[in-house]
Amino acid sequence: MKEKKLWGNINAVVALLVLLFMLVPIIVIFVNSFNSSQFFSFPPEGFTLKWYERFLENREYKTAIAVSLKIATLSVLVALLLGIPASYGIYRWKSPVSKVLSSLFLSPLMLPGIVWAIGLIQYYSIVNLTGTTAGLVAAHIILILPYVIRLVLSSLSYLDFDTVNAARTLGATSGKAFLKIVLPAIKPGVIISAIFGFMVSFNDVTISTFIAGTKNLTYPVRMYVELRTEGLDPLAVAVSAVIMAFTIVIALLAEKFWSWSKYL
């Protein structure tokens, strides 16, 4: 028994070290956002809130975050509107064709984003979608759609279809049956895919770097460009810290209310 406990402890220490490693960048961002030095320094030179104040005054980052919020929200909404019916169709239509279609729907997950992006810039430059909101939202929908379909399909697999049949026998229209029975059943899948999809869109750099215009610059793209050309800007560090804090809160809430880690 003693030996078992020892092994358990060693395992715990190693596991927590790995976890610490994973959180290093996040911790460094948080600590350094309060550092009064213009350049990165460790240990921090002094405590300050000035970078947060500068963030509140900075139009560019606020605009960029607004753009990201807008694009992510629109993309999630449309992806849900497209993805839920599509998953229901796949679920109901048990034929080889739907198998093929469902793997087609999941294919954006398989193909590296950067390869698609190189095709996308060429296509967008011809159809005049480069840098437009519509263009960005459309691309982000494709990024999100596979997650929606996969998560909704996995919730659908728990659905007892006899209840739908029963409702139909009792005179409910198929639309009503969908709204009253199917939709509540797949709620967790929908919610979690919405949250996850939102994060994917909100944080996407690869695709957006290629197609984001100057008017619709999302915040990660702005951050990428500045990190490469201006170095580590304390202002960007403060912005990151704010966004990270929100992300952590949302993730913990999602876990508390919908235990989302089971689905991911």
């Binding site: 350094n32 992300t247 880690s261």
Partner: peptide
């Protein structure tokens, strides 16, 4: 669930923020 949420943070927290954190860490 709590630990799994911590683990997924680097993925949902955005590649850019992680990269920036590493930049400051590894300079």
């Amino acid at each position: 669930g709590f630990f799994l949420t911590l683990v997924i943070l680097p993925m949902i927290g955005g590649a850019m923020i992680q990269t920036m954190g590493w930049f400051a860490t590894l300079m």
